[in-house]
């Protein structure tokens, strides 16, 4: 169990960290706020289209994706309304915080996948994949956070949030495996 937590931590720390450094370098060259926002929007839409959506279809099907999408839209409206009340003076911070909360939801199934495969020989390649997978997420998150003018604190704050969901996913997988003895062999 300790091993799997360590892999998750390393993957999140380096993946998101490299993404943050890359976005810092890019922002250093491009000071235009419109450009940074446009790059961020393109990166997010690309991440969904080429990364998350095909993965979701592979795990479920089109119907699951469509119903999840609709629930996600309502979830967005709910979180947006909540943040509107809390952060009405900081609209720039709202987008970054919203995105961090949503990416933590995304890390939950990744935790389950990591928990399932960590005892196999795949753990090293899984670690590499997770680091590469976390780089664009880090770039997206930090592009928005740099715009707000934040530096070091949000990095640790985001890491904590991201790690929390990853750990939750891994723990859920362990509980599931304990309740169903043949779960790991199917």
């Amino acid at each position: 169990m300790g091993h799997v937590w360590f892999i998750g931590f390393i993957a999140t720390f380096f993946g998101v960290g490299i993404g943050g450094v890359l976005s810092h370098v890019i922002n250093g060259f491009k000071k235009s706020l419109g450009t940074v926002y446009a790059v961020c929007a393109g990166l997010i839409l690309g991440l969904i289209s080429f990364g998350i959506a095909p993965e979701a279809i592979e795990l479920g099907n089109w119907i699951v994706l469509s119903s999840g999408f609709i629930v996600g839209v309502f979830l967005f409206r709910f979180i947006h309304a909540m943040l509107e009340i809390r952060l009405h003076k900081r609209p720039d911070l709202k987008s970054g915080l919203l995105l961090t909360v949503i990416i933590t939801f995304h890390n939950f199934p990744i935790g389950i996948i990591l928990g399932t495969n960590v005892e196999s020989d795949l753990s090293r390649s899984l670690l590499q994949t997770l680091i590469l997978h976390n780089i664009p997420e880090g770039m997206v998150l930090f592009t928005l956070l740099f715009i707000t003018g934040f530096r070091l604190y949000p990095y640790f704050y985001c890491l904590l949030l991201l790690r929390y969901q990853l750990l939750l996913g891994q723990s859920s997988e362990k509980c599931l495996a304990r309740k169903t003895p043949f779960y790991g062999h199917s």
């Binding site: 998350i52 479920g60 999408f69």
Partner: peptide, 12 residues
């Protein structure tokens, strides 16, 4: 994961 697709799309 499909839930994430919907929410992230809306954020973007």
């Amino acid at each position: 994961m499909s839930l994430t697709v919907g929410t992230i799309y809306m954020v973007a």
